[in-house]
Design a protein around this nucleic acid. Sequence first.
DNA 1: GCGACAG
DNA 2: ATCTTGTCGC
Length: 220
Amino acid sequence: MMSEAEAMGVQRELSQRVIQHDDLPRPVRIIAGADVEYDKHSDRIAGAIVLLDADTKAVLDAATHVMTASFPYIPGLFSFREMPPLLEAYQKLRLRPDVIVCDGHGVAHPRRFGLACHLGLELNVPTVGCGKTRLIGRYDDLALERGATAALLDEMTGDRLGLALRTQTGINPLFVSVGHRVSLGTAAQLVLSMCDAVRLPETTRQADKYAREALEAAIH
DNA sequence: GCGACAG
DNA sequence: ATCTTGTCGC
């Protein structure tokens, strides 16, 4: 298995190839969600990618893959654990997405190479990082209203890593960052467009559901 | 006692 | 649906 040091080297190398500006089909018609679910009692994991109609949010296609985790959970090396089942699931899809919203960060990462970057680069598909909790960076003065944003800043370098995005008024924000081939502004727009009356985007909710069902079916 | 750590 | 508390490691 790849060592931690090797994995970090891979991240530093590949991060050079991340594209941070818009290079995706417009308008976006098919938007995907990607998520991985874990079994509490074993190292079985299930990845799911679900394709939604960007306008109606109807599920157009979905694929899952259950396997044994080949890499431990280490903050910052998340993608080495979650990528394998997601790549397998992606190959099973019948349609191709215009963009994938990932359940994890993009460049809001210590080496600017979170799961969304890794998946986007590997598949050469536009991706957005959308985490539920912060990995690095700080923000303040985030207004309460739905749609409000605050820059997520690296405390040491001052780099803008992404945005804290309020998807519902008065509810804790999500953390949006560039994955690959999508600008930060577009990323935030896409995520917000997938949130109706709930905190999480429909892409993430559907992917989570499919992954959980696949894992459940594989174990029982 | 204190705390930074995606899932 | 969302948040948080207790817990563990340092």
